[in-house]
């Protein structure tokens, strides 16, 4: 599960997919997760990182992260569609 290499993610949370021409916008926590994904972190490690930095519980995080990754997958932002 890795973000496609050619996808540009700016500091504002502006995301551009040069192969499809689509652009996206992410909020700060979404941006943080995208960056972690780019650095190659897996879901477990992202959950740990987010849990350490944000006031929330692991269930909420897990559910929201799954939803976020699912949305990003639907937007074809990941390297391999099946993983």
């Amino acid at each position: 599960m890795k973000i496609k290499k050619n996808i540009a993610v700016s500091e504002n949370g502006f995301i551009f997919n040069p192969s499809s021409g689509e652009s996206f916008s992410a909020n700060p926590s979404g941006l943080e997760i995208l960056n972690l994904l780019r650095q190659g972190h897996d879901k477990e490690s992202i959950l740990n990182h987010m849990g350490e930095n944000y006031q929330t519980d692991s269930q909420t995080l897990e559910r929201d992260l799954t939803d976020f990754i699912e949305t990003a997958r639907q937007y074809h932002l990941f390297e391999h569609e099946d993983e």
Partner: peptide, 21 residues
């Protein structure tokens, strides 16, 4: 101190979509 949590979101920018601010 931990940051206030906000659900992560990503959304497609569409031409007819008002900018978020």
């Amino acid at each position: 101190t931990k940051k206030r949590y906000e659900r992560p979101v990503i959304k497609r920018l569409e031409s007819n979509m008002p900018a978020k601010f």
